[in-house]
C-alpha cells in the first residue's frame, strides 16, 4: 500500500507544488500577466466564461475524433493489404516509411489551397498526420505474428483468412493500439496546426487570436481545455485496449510502447 501511495502521491504532489510555485511567482515576483498569468487567473477565465471555450472546443473535438477514426480505418486496411500482398508491401511500404521521416505538417497549407479554409481541410491534415504511425505499427504487428503459430495453422490447413482472424490479428492488437495511441495525439497536433493557420474557429484559433491580443490567460485556459480533450481521447483508446485485452483473456503480448 505504501508503495502505491508513493507511486501516485509523489508525482501528484510535485505537480501541485509546481502550480503553487507558479502562483507564488506571479503574485510576489511582479511578473506581468501578459507574460505569465497566475494559475488563479487562468482558472478565472475557465470558470468565468466557460461558454466561449466550450463552444470552440466542440469543432476541435469533432475534427480530432473524425480524423482519428478515418486514419485508423485507412491505416488498418492498408496494413492488411501490406500483410497479404508481397507486391504491395515491397512497393508501398518503403515509401510509407520514407514519409514517416519527412515533416508532413508542412503540407498543411497545401490542403487549405485544395480544400479551402474550414473543417474539411483541417480534418484532412489530421488524417494525413495520424495515418502513417497507424499503418506502420499495424503492419509491424501483423507481420510479427509468431512463425511457429502460423505454421501450426498451416499444418491444420487453415485458410489465410482463418490465420488472419485467429492468429495475426490478436498478435497485432498491442501494436494496433500502440499505433492508435500515437495516432490520437498526432490527429490532435494536425487539427491544432490546421486551426492555427486557417484561423476561423476552434481552440487553435482561440489560442492564436488570444496570444496576438496579449490575453495569455485565455491562451492557457484554452490549452487546459485542449489537454483535457487530449487526455479523454487517449483515455478512451486506452480503455478500448483494456476491453480488448480482457476479451482475449488478458494474455496478449505487450508491445512495450507507452
Amino acid at each position: 500500500m505504501a508503495h502505491v501511495g508513493r507511486a501516485v502521491g509523489l508525482p501528484v504532489a510535485f505537480a501541485i507544488f509546481c502550480v503553487i510555485a507558479w502562483e507564488a511567482l506571479c503574485r510576489f515576483g511582479h511578473v506581468s500577466s501578459e507574460l505569465l498569468p497566475a494559475p488563479s487567473a487562468v482558472w478565472n477565465v475557465l470558470a468565468g466564461n466557460p461558454g466561449i471555450l466550450m463552444e470552440q472546443a466542440v469543432p476541435t473535438t469533432i475534427e480530432v475524433a473524425v480524423s482519428f477514426a478515418v486514419a485508423c480505418a485507412v491505416g488498418v486496411l492498408l496494413a492488411i493489404g501490406i500483410t497479404f500482398s508481397a507486391a504491395i508491401r515491397e512497393a508501398i511500404y518503403p515509401n510509407i516509411v520514407m514519409f514517416q521521416v519527412i515533416p508532413k505538417i508542412a503540407l498543411a497549407p497545401l490542403f487549405i489551397v485544395w480544400l479551402g479554409v474550414g473543417g474539411k481541410s483541417i480534418v484532412t491534415v489530421g488524417v494525413f498526420i495520424a495515418f502513417f504511425p497507424m499503418v506502420v505499427s499495424t503492419a509491424t504487428g501483423l507481420v510479427g505474428a509468431k512463425p511457429d503459430v502460423l505454421q501450426l495453422c498451416r499444418s491444420l490447413t487453415a485458410s489465410e483468412w482463418q490465420c488472419f482472424v485467429l492468429v495475426r490479428f490478436p498478435y497485432a492488437m498491442p501494436h494496433i493500439f500502440a499505433g492508435m495511441k500515437v495516432g490520437v495525439t498526432m490527429a490532435m497536433i494536425g487539427v491544432i496546426v490546421g486551426e492555427f493557420i486557417t484561423a476561423q474557429a476552434g481552440l487553435g484559433y482561440i489560442i492564436m487570436f488570444a496570444s496576438s491580443a496579449g490575453e495569455t490567460a485565455t491562451v492557457l485556459a484554452a490549452i487546459v481545455v485542449l489537454c483535457g480533450i487530449g487526455l479523454v481521447l487517449y483515455g478512451l483508446v486506452a480503455l478500448g485496449e483494456l476491453a480488448v485485452r480482457r476479451w482475449y483473456g488478458g494474455e496478449l503480448p505487450t508491445s512495450g510502447v507507452i
Partner: peptide
C-alpha cells in the same frame, strides 16, 4: 518516482498548442 509519471503525462498532451506561448 516524482518526475517520470509527469513526463509520461506530458507525452499525451498536445504540446503544439503551446507554440504561440513561446512567441509571447
Amino acid at each position: 518516482d516524482t518526475l517520470y509519471p509527469n513526463l509520461v503525462a506530458f507525452q499525451l498532451v498536445p504540446k503544439v498548442a503551446l507554440a504561440p506561448l513561446f512567441v509571447v
